[in-house]
Design a protein around this nucleic acid. Structure first.
Lengths: 343, 343
DNA sequence: TTGTATGCGTTATCAG
DNA sequence: CTGATAACGCATACAA
């Protein structure tokens, strides 16, 4: 026979130590009702409660500063009310901006957001996924996912939305973003009219579908326009500021250019600094072209032409998509409109 | 008598639908052992398990892609292994940088980080605190807390660390930051030697202890140095770029200045833009002084003199402090060294 | 070494 | 309308 044979309701529960939050039983005891009544009173719509009972419960709950234990609730209802946001780069303000915008909306829903950073690394991303899955999150948002072992099993099990970057190995995951290839083409075509001279390109890693599309857009339209871009005027980089700087050092080491198209704004910042170091005025001597429209550009980089990615709309559309997914329906994702910002 | 009188172990559990993750019972069944053996095998150090049993359990767990349910574990062990990070402003990169740095470290601990944004608003912050508390977080990090109703009860119940800004009504909460008043004094004193002309100040809200200290530092040392700063050369703002712009419009509307000391870098960015619009060259015509050293300055704002706040060290020190708190000890917090960045 | 049983805090079902 | 109880997934004290 177990040691503690008495019903837990008979067990004289010592007054909780000050640090411990009150449980539903504490409220029930103080209100002199059963825990079921407390639950019903505090969760309107789950059952009938008399006004008197409700009042006593609410009073007791307030007195004890009762707040329902999230885990007990999650365990029982199988709904964690928690989402995961996986960020690939902490350096890109645009990514952060989407994170915060999404947090605001999720918070308004009364849900929570766990945050992870993958640093564009597969192993790190897998660690994030493992943790998020063990926490039974209601859904995962990827602000730029990378290919990784656990990605496929994760997207198959849980509700996932890709933001700003697709992963081609899992094509069925809803995607929220812009048409990067079309944007690159239009951007280049529009800008090229004003450019007189040599053009260089610093693109992002081709393992990123988004970077690949932007590069393809640039190259295709350049060819179609009869605009010659020699091979040594096209250099790769990752998506960091530093790599933009390095790429510019390489480009301007042997020759000069009048315009540089970059895979994103970060790269353009790095190129900018190198140009300044070389005594080149931007945009007088060199025109720089980015991608994303980092919110700070308006203040600190007025010289940068770029493609405005609607990050606030990304957050809204991602959440809509996630909600659809959570209803068990399939969701198509959303391709959103972009704007050209030309200086 | 309850309807389902049989032990749950006798209940023939239907094979789980594909979407449901495996539970510890599924692993136990597949391995042909009890759930306690599974628990012991998978949590080394919690009990003796034979090598054979462990092997079978591990195999079964892998086959089922078993990952322990975080909530069941948290409920039982009373340890959620989850922290909350409350951010006051999404606009300030420095704050984001601390968030990401902390996330990395927390992730390495195998813990998780819930993120909240208060937008410097009391009611919003209270909603965050309520949610975090109901999730039984192991601790809260405040990257700039504001005064709010739930702040005191929250810091009394849970482990909290203030980063970069104290809240004077709860002086006993460990604080990680720099000595803002000393930094402001030293910054001003050092810079003043090079300034020849009129000086203005755009300070942050005095409800922020940090902003108040920076302003006091500036004003005190100015007086001590015999440097006259008339009343109409000192204007307030919140900590946003926009408000810096507005403040500069006001300042430069009626007179001109040779140097502007700002409450943080964001404000300085706003002032910068207004100066440019007025045709003033920075730093040739006007010297600008910020506070924080936003990571982007190196690339985009080389004209900005500022005080470098060690944000990576903030993250490390905050986590150390939190760990101490979690051991039941009291923690003093940490005052970290800053650097002057002069252009 | 292994298994059984209990409880963590909650909600839902069911009997009263 | 109310109360008793099972169940969610897990860890652990205790029995075997």
């Amino acid at each position: 026979m177990p040691k503690n044979a008495g019903s837990k309701h008979n067990t004289p529960v010592a007054e909780r130590s000050a640090g411990q939050p009150a449980s539903i039983r504490d409220v029930a005891r103080l209100a002199g009702v059963s825990i079921s009544s407390v639950s019903r009173a505090l969760n309107p719509g789950t059952g009938k409660v008399s006004a008197a009972t409700r009042l006593r419960v609410v009073r007791a709950a307030e007195e004890l500063r009762y707040s329902p234990n999230h885990f007990g609730r999650a365990l029982r209802s199988q709904n964690t009310n928690t989402y995961a946001f996986v960020l690939s780069s902490i350096q890109n303000n645009l990514y952060s901006a989407v994170a915060w915008e999404l947090e605001r909306r999720i918070s308004e829903m009364g849900a929570g957001m766990l945050i992870y950073t993958s640093n564009e690394d597969s192993a790190t991303q897998d660690r994030c996924l493992e943790d998020a899955v063990s926490r039974q999150v209601a859904g995962l948002f990827f602000m730029c996912a990378v290919e990784s072992d656990l990605l496929k099993p994760t997207v198959e099990r849980g509700n996932c939305v890709f933001i700003n970057r697709r992963v081609t190995s899992v094509p069925d995951v809803p995607f929220v973003g812009i048409d990067d290839e079309a944007a690159a083409r239009e951007f280049f075509a529009t800008a090229a009219r004003r450019i007189d001279g040599r053009i260089a390109i610093v693109h992002g890693p081709q393992s990123s579908d988004t970077s690949a599309k932007r590069l393809r857009g640039f190259l295709d339209i350049a060819r179609e326009l009869g605009c010659d871009i020699p091979e040594d005027a096209v250099v790769g980089s990752d998506l960091s500021i530093e790599s933009g700087y390095t790429a510019a050092s390489k480009l301007f080491g042997s020759q000069s250019f009048d315009a540089v198209f970059c895979g994103n704004d970060q790269i353009a910042y790095g190129v900018y600094r190198r140009c300044r170091e070389l005594g080149l005025q931007v945009p007088n001597d060199v025109s720089l072209f980015g991608f994303d429209d980092n919110p700070l550009n308006e203040w600190l980089a007025p010289w940068l032409s770029t493609v405005r990615v609607p990050y606030a709309a990304f957050a809204a559309a991602s959440l809509d998509t996630m909600k659809t997914l959570n209803q068990g329906k399939s969701a198509p994702g959303r391709i959103l409109p972009y704007d050209l910002v030309l200086k």
